[in-house]
Computed example of a mutant assay.
Amino acid sequence: MKKVYAFFLIGAMFLSALAAGCISNTEPSTTPVETSTLTNTVPLVTDSNGNVNMQDLQSYIDSLPSEPLTDAEKEGLLFMVEEEKLAHDVYTKLYEKWGLQIFSNIARSETTHVESVRMLLKKYNLTDPTANAGIGEFQNPELQALYDQLIEMGMKSEIDALKVGALVEETDIRDLQERIAMTNKIDIITVYENLMMGSRNHLRAFVSQLKNRGITYEPQILSKDEYEQIINSPMEMGGGMGGRP
């Protein structure tokens, strides 16, 4: 992969990697139901800091039956657990470099995101590609290259580091939206919806930090309208096991 320095090219690389992880030649064995119906009823157990309530989520996942997964659903879970780990690892390294509390806080939140996907890997007997992997180590070669590029960029300055954080969260939102559209499994949709809510809150936090430094962040992955809708909305708080807030 060519060495990329321009910010918008790193965003393009993210999209390329996501496409590599998302596309499957295998048609789903079941027809996905209208996801808007499901996402209006799944429990959101994520707080305004993006932390997932693991106990509540585990209880809900355990209450649902295990059904055969399509190849696309399996691929999605394996990719997502590494993508969430990428976010955690990037923020951990950027905190070590710059000492900004936002990176420490969101890295802890990303730990709950990784563990949320791991719940599903365990439920469906899928081998966890992040098991025993160290910081910055990934089985997916595209994610490995992306991690290296993002770290290189984030080490340049605090501003660049915060832009990396916003870019990671934008990408996570887009990828989760695509994953939700590829499944009809309520447990998978529930996890993805909670992670996406956390990512929206994280994006708001990074953009706010940049604004405080006089920087106007321009979206790299999301459309301008979608980005503005997120940024101009308050931090979200899950309503718990009763469903959406």
Rank of each mutant, 00 (worst) to 15 (best):
V191I: 12
N194P: 13
D128T: 05
E152D: 15
S109A: 15
A205N: 13
I10Y: 00
K224H: 09
E67R: 13
T127A: 12
D160E: 14
T216P: 00
N40F: 04
G165D: 04
L146D: 07
N140K: 02
S104K: 14
E228F: 03
V191M: 08
H113W: 04
I61P: 12
I10T: 11
Y60H: 15
L222Q: 06
D160N: 08
I151D: 11
K74D: 02
K74F: 04
S208G: 11
E218G: 02
L126H: 01
P219S: 02
E158H: 07
Q229Y: 04
P141N: 07
L162E: 06
P68W: 10
L146N: 06
S16G: 10
L100I: 13
F79C: 10
S208I: 01
F138C: 01
S208C: 07
K163A: 03
R204C: 08
E170P: 05
N132T: 06
A205I: 04
N232Y: 07
S16N: 08
N184M: 13
I180C: 08
L100A: 11
I61F: 13
I10L: 15
I189K: 08
I180K: 13
K163C: 07
L64C: 09
E228C: 01
S157N: 05
L195D: 10
L78C: 04
S59G: 13
S208P: 01
N53R: 12
V114H: 01
K123Y: 07
H202F: 01
E142C: 05
I189R: 08
E84K: 10
K211C: 01
L126R: 01
R179M: 15
S48A: 14
F138T: 02
S208H: 12
W98A: 06
V90S: 00
K85R: 03
L143H: 03
N194D: 14
K3I: 15
L150H: 12
S116D: 11
Q149Y: 11
L64T: 08
E27C: 01
K85Y: 02
N125T: 09
T30D: 07
A205V: 05
G165S: 06
T171W: 02
S208K: 15
I215G: 00
G214Y: 04
K224Y: 09
V114I: 15
R213M: 15
G239T: 07
